[in-house]
């Protein structure tokens, strides 16, 4: 069974009948079995085999999955469970799951902690600014690149713009520090216009601009890849039809190109929203100083200092758990809303 066929099943059996579905539905006679079936029918030899038989037939496959599974359990799921220390007293060197229950003590603690709400606000502001700037930029760049007819030029721009993606965050932070230092290029420009050199990284009012700017610098090129791929799949007969209808280039972009890459845009938007609260923790950690805490301190850096510098692990775990749960809720709701409203979703 090939992939489109499989999709057709999923579309027909989607549990919200009034949801708008973007996947093309094939002709009715193409559909084998429109009656009730699990939403995702297993392909190939689909009938469920008893476990005994499955183990004998696919023992080698299960064996191959064993080590990775063990890895996931130890390094991914154990820490998830380890979050119970948010509700338990923890003694360094003791059990990783803590000593005794203390209920919601640590949760109450951060709810009543003004610093927590301060860093929470900072996180939301920084995340929103990043999303606002770094989400549309790759789309714009991809649209511009798509109009370039000279192959070598397009290739060169792409290669150069992908490069920052491969740099260590330490290097990026180092570059930011050099460019914004008192002797750096930015201040040379400021002085060239007759201004006074500004120690940018020590000024809280500049932190957000520096953060978002460097983020845009690092992500804009790499972000175009998926859009450029999506752009090549836009049906060229649609452009033809639009031209016959008298649409100029701008209207073609608006009515044909953008709808063509809409699923990609939505998918990436959902992913970005899910990562909203994890705003580049490492970069903030490298770039902030106590002087800029008022705008730069975010949830992750705060919990890092509380937990690992001041050794209050349970309190920090409570904050971390809160952050992770909010992140999960956000990605689930973004997915739900986009499925309801535009009919495209991650799952």
């Amino acid at each position: 069974m090939d992939v489109p066929h499989d999709r057709a099943h999923r579309v027909l059996l989607a549990d919200d009948p009034d949801g708008i579905v973007t996947t093309p539905v094939p002709a009715p006679d193409d559909v084998v079995d429109p009656v009730r079936r699990p939403p995702r029918p297993p392909r190939g030899t689909s009938a469920k085999v008893p476990w005994r038989l499955a183990l004998r037939r696919d023992g080698a496959l299960y064996a191959m999955a064993l080590l990775p599974l063990l890895f996931l359990l130890v390094f991914r799921y154990l820490p998830m469970v380890g979050n119970v220390i948010a509700f338990r007293r923890f003694r360094p060197g003791g059990s990783i799951f803590g000593e005794e229950w203390v209920g919601l003590r640590y949760v109450r603690m951060f709810i009543e902690d003004p610093t927590f709400w301060h860093v929470f606000t900072n996180t939301v502001v920084l995340g929103a600014l990043t999303l606002l700037v770094c989400f549309p930029l790759p789309i714009v760049l991809a649209l511009l690149l798509n109009e370039v007819r000279t192959k070598w030029f397009k290739g060169a721009v792409q290669s150069i713009s992908y490069l920052p993606h491969f740099l260590s965050i330490v290097i990026v932070a180092g570059m930011v520090m050099q460019l914004t230092s008192l002797q750096g290029t930015v201040n040379q420009i400021v002085e060239g216009f007759g201004g006074e050199a500004i120690p940018f990284l020590q000024r809280p009012e500049w932190f957000r601009a520096i953060y978002v700017g460097s983020e845009a610098w690092q992500t804009v090129g790499w972000g175009t890849i998926l859009y450029l791929a999506a752009l090549t799949t836009v049906d060229s007969s649609l452009y033809e039809a639009a031209r016959i209808d008298g649409a100029n280039r701008w209207r073609q972009t608006w009515h044909v190109t953008l709808p063509g890459i809409r699923p990609t845009m939505i998918t990436l938007l959902i992913l970005n929203i899910g990562l909203f609260l994890n705003v580049g923790f490492e970069k903030v950690l490298l770039l902030y100083t106590p002087l800029t805490y008022s705008t730069a301190d975010v949830i992750s850096t705060y919990l890092y200092r509380v937990g690992l510098v001041s050794n209050n692990l349970s309190y920090a775990a409570a904050i971390g758990l809160f952050q992770a749960v909010i992140g999960l809720v956000m990605v689930l709701s973004a997915n739900f809303i986009s499925r309801r409203v535009v009919g495209a979703s991650l799952w």
């Binding site: 991914r76 799921y77 154990l78 820490p79 998830m80 469970v81 380890g82 979050n83 220390i85 990783i96 899910g274 992750s300 919990l303 890092y304 937990g307 690992l308 692990l313 920090a316 775990a317 971390g320 758990l321 952050q323 992770a324 992140g327 999960l328 990605v331 689930l332």
Partner: peptide, 8 residues
């Protein structure tokens, strides 16, 4: 979509 976090 869900990870343990730094502390655990």
């Amino acid at each position: 979509f869900f990870n343990g976090g730094i502390i655990p």
